Amino acid sequence: MRHAFLTDEQIDARALAHRRGLGFRDDRAIDFAKLMARLKARYPNFTYERVADDSLGEAEAQWDSQAKRLLITDTVFDGAERGEGRALMAVAHAVGHALLGHEGTFNRSPAGSPAERFSPKLRSMEYQARRYAAAFLIPDTPAVRALDATGLSRRYHVSMSAAIVRHSELRSGENASVSPSRPGGVAG
Results as ranks from 00 to 15, higher is better:
M1D: 13
R2P: 12
R2H: 06
R2Y: 03
L6C: 09
D8T: 02
E9D: 07
I11C: 04
A13S: 13
R14Y: 09
A17F: 07
R20T: 06
G21S: 09
L22A: 11
L22P: 14
L22F: 10
G23E: 01
R28C: 05
A33Y: 06
L35Q: 06
M36I: 07
A37N: 07
R38P: 00
R38M: 08
K40F: 08
A41K: 12
R42P: 00
N45L: 13
F46Q: 08
D54M: 01
D54Q: 11
L56T: 00
G57F: 02
G57H: 14
A59S: 02
A59P: 09
E60Q: 14
A61D: 10
A61Q: 01
D64H: 04
S65A: 08
K68P: 05
L70K: 01
L71W: 08
I72D: 03
I72R: 01
T73N: 14
D74T: 11
V76R: 13
A80L: 04
R82I: 00
G85H: 05
R86V: 14
A87W: 03
L88T: 10
H93E: 08
H93Y: 06
H93F: 03
G96I: 02
L99S: 02
L100E: 09
E103W: 10
G104H: 11
N107D: 08
R108T: 14
S109A: 07
S109V: 15
P110W: 05
S113N: 09
S113Y: 12
E116M: 02
S119Y: 14
S119P: 15
L122P: 14
S124L: 11
M125E: 06
A129Y: 09
R130H: 02
R131H: 15
R131I: 12
Y132H: 01
A133E: 10
T141E: 14
T141I: 12
P142K: 10
V144P: 00
L147R: 07
L147V: 11
D148A: 07
S153V: 08
S153G: 08
R155C: 04
H157S: 08
V158H: 13
A162K: 04
V165L: 07
H167E: 04
S168G: 15
L170Q: 07
S172F: 00
S172Y: 00
E174H: 13
N175V: 08
S177D: 05
S181P: 00
R182A: 09
R182N: 12
G184D: 09
G184W: 12
G185R: 05
